[in-house]
Design a protein around this nucleic acid. Structure first.
Ligand SMILES: [Zn+2]
Length: 271
DNA sequence: GTCGTTGTTACTTC
DNA sequence: CGAAGTAACAACGA
């Protein structure tokens, strides 16, 4: 279930495969996957560019946009022929070159929106975590203006776009911040550390081609490698790489949350 | 049969 | 209003 790094890897791979290609036809196999808010289908449109905001991939067409969100189990797999699996195939974008971009999605939560503009779709999406606009000062202000558990705050895409459950646990561990620490009680030093680590961890994960825990695949169907470098996610019961304590797992926002009780003390007090 | 799962949104309650 | 909790979406594997 992809977060910013996985989406960015897919975007980079698709750029060379799709830009300047023309869409011939779209075949829909699960109706809810495709949300058409334009008067027509995107057939005959050229893909001019591919952008990303948070976990959204944006195919910029001549006239309008195709916006893709993979949600939990979405996969975009590129094929140069008709010889591909139809299992869990929800939609195919056929290009005039004969190549096909297939959208697989086991749980059917993913969506492909065809929209005339991006405003309505992105009203509740904040600044991208890897954007130049996401500065330390901006982050400090954002934290100060909310009183909310930091993990819950970071999961909310209207604050900062792109972080999800895995990378939030990793960023908070590396920064020594308890996931329930209130945003307005995080001091400037911790905020700066967290800001640096968010960028660092996301960029490292992109370099490792993303994290494959179960369903994430690159556009060639390959695995990422970043799952081999996680420090706390899925490591409950194992020793902390920093201090040797046992990594704990709890539930925050009904999400599995992994942390070291010594390196990330609640209320700044060792437990 | 039950539980948990990398996401988002609507809804309720405080 | 903000924040927190829950269900819903839906399918699979342990
Ligand atoms: Zn530790």
């Amino acid at each position: 279930m992809p977060e910013l790094p996985e989406v960015e890897v897919i975007r980079n791979e698709l750029k060379s495969k799709l830009i300047n290609q023309r869409i011939n036809d779209i075949k829909i196999f699960w109706h809810k996957t495709f949300v058409n808010l334009c008067s027509e289908l995107p057939n005959d449109n050229k893909i001019a560019d591919i952008e990303r905001l948070g976990k959204y991939i944006v195919l910029v067409l001549d006239q309008n946009f195709l916006v893709i969100h993979l949600r939990m189990t979405g996969q975009l797999i590129f094929s140069q022929n008709e010889n591909f699996s139809r299992d869990h195939l929800r939609l195919s974008i056929h290009l005039q070159s004969g190549n096909i971009l297939n959208f697989y999605d086991i749980r059917k939560f993913g969506r492909i929106y065809h929209v005339p503009d991006l405003n309505s779709l992105f009203t509740n999406v904040g600044i991208d975590a890897l954007s130049q606009k996401f500065t330390n000062d901006y982050f400090k202000e954002l934290l100060r203006n909310h009183k909310r558990g930091i993990k819950s705050f970071l999961l909310d895409q209207k604050n900062i776009a792109g972080l999800g459950n895995i990378y939030i646990d990793e960023c908070l561990f590396l920064s020594g911040i308890h996931p329930k620490k209130l945003t307005n009680e995080i001091n400037n030093k911790s905020a700066k550390q967290l800001h640096i680590n968010i960028k660092k961890i996301l960029n490292l994960a992109i370099g490792n081609m993303g994290t494959t825990i179960s369903d994430y695949r690159t556009t060639g169907g390959g695995f990422g490698r970043n799952q081999n470098f996680l420090k706390v996610y899925k490591r409950e019961g194992n020793s902390c790489f920093k201090c040797g304590s046992i990594i704990k797992k709890t539930r925050i926002n009904s999400r599995g949350t992994h942390f070291c009780p010594v390196c990330q003390p609640e209320n700044g007090v060792l437990q």
